[in-house]
Simulated assay, not measured.
Amino acid sequence: MKQNSATIGAPCWVELGTSDPAAAQSFYGELFGWRAETDVRPEAGGYTQMFLGDAPAAAVTPLYAPQQPTAWTVSFAVAAADETVATIKARGGRALMEPADVFDLGRFAVVTDTSGAVFTLWQARAFQGAGVFNEPGALGWVELATRDAESATAFYPAVFGWSVTASPQYTQWGLAGADFGGMMVMDERFPPQVPAHWLPYFAVADVDNTVTRANGLGADVLMAATDVPDGPRIGVLRDAQGAVFGVYRAGDEG
C-alpha cells in the first residue's frame, strides 16, 4: 500500500469481528505487537482498537449479529457515505447497513459488491482511520478474491475511481498511480461455499518467522511462506476462531 495515510478511495481501516475477542486480542497482540484499548461505553458494544505503538492499526469487535461470520473486514475512506452507497446500489451492489453516525467519529456503512464481497465505508470526522501503514504490524495490502473479475473491474473504478493495472497473472488496484491492493480470481482451490471476500495483508519483517509463530499460537497455515513471481514473499493464515488474513514482507508493497 503506497499510501501512508488515510486517503479518500483507499483502504483506511480493518476490523476483526470474532467469536472470542479476548483470544483475538491476545493472539494478534503476540503476533504483531498490538496493544488493546476497549471503548468502555455500553453503546460502543465492546469495540476495541488495537494500537501499534501510539498509532491505531486495527479493531477487534464481538459478533454483532447471529449471521455475522468471524472475519476481517476492510474499510475504504469516502468523502460522503450516503452518496457512495447510492452509487454502489446503482452499480449492482447492496447495502447491508445503511449509513449511520458513529458518535462524533465518522459515518459508517456496510455494503457488498456485485458478487457479494462485503466491505465497509468510512466517512471520517474525528477519527481518520489507521495511523500507520506498511510498517511491520500494520496494514499493507488488500486483496479481493472473486469469481467474477469482469464485474469487479467495472464496479470498483465506478465507485471509487480506482485505476486498474492488469497482467495475465494478477490485477492491481490503485489511486493516482499508487497501488494499494489487488484481485485474485477464485478457482477450484476454493470450495463452492467460500464467498467472494476482501483479504487484508499485514506487513511483517520476516514472513517465515511470522508464519511459524502464528502456527505456534494456534493459527492454521493456509499458505506457507512463498515468494510470488515478480512480487513479495507472503503467507496466508487462519486464526483459531476462523478469520483469514495474509502477511507479506515489509518493503515489498506495490
Rank of each mutant, 00 (worst) to 15 (best):
Pro136Asp: 07
Trp173Arg: 06
Ala22Asp: 12
Val60Phe: 11
Val118Ala: 06
Pro157Thr: 07
Phe202Gly: 01
Ala55His: 14
Ala124His: 10
Gly45Asn: 14
Gly246Cys: 08
Phe160Gln: 03
Ala243Gln: 10
Val221Phe: 05
Thr114Ser: 11
Ala95Tyr: 09
Ala225Val: 09
Pro99Glu: 10
Gly254Ser: 13
Phe76Leu: 13
Ala154Val: 14
Ala81Lys: 07
Gln67Pro: 02
Val102Leu: 13
Gly177Gln: 04
Tyr170Gln: 00
Arg213Cys: 00
Gly231Ser: 12
Gln128Lys: 14
Asp104Gln: 09
Thr120Tyr: 09
Leu144Tyr: 06
Ser5Ala: 15
Trp198Val: 03
Ala95Gly: 06
Val185Pro: 02
Leu96Asn: 14
Val132Leu: 09
Ala117Ile: 08
Ala154Asp: 14
Arg189Ser: 15
Gln67Arg: 11
Asn4Gly: 11
Arg189Thr: 15
Tyr47His: 12
Ser151Arg: 12
Asp148Phe: 00
Ala250Ser: 15
Met97Ser: 12
Ala23Asn: 05
Gly181Thr: 08
Ala158Ile: 01
Thr112Glu: 10
Pro229Tyr: 11
Ala205Arg: 13
Arg125Phe: 12
Asp187Lys: 01
Gly46Ala: 09
Ala219Ser: 13
Ala79Met: 03
Gly29Met: 07
Trp72Arg: 04
Gln172Lys: 13
Thr146Gly: 00
Ala80Arg: 10
Asp113Val: 01
Ala90Tyr: 03
Ser26Gly: 01
Gly29His: 07
Gly235Lys: 07
Arg125Glu: 14
Ile88Phe: 02
Trp34Asn: 04
Tyr170Val: 00
Leu52Gly: 08
Tyr201Cys: 03
Ala58Glu: 09
Ala23His: 04
Met184Asp: 01
Thr38Cys: 01
Val14Lys: 05
Arg189Phe: 13
Ala243Thr: 05
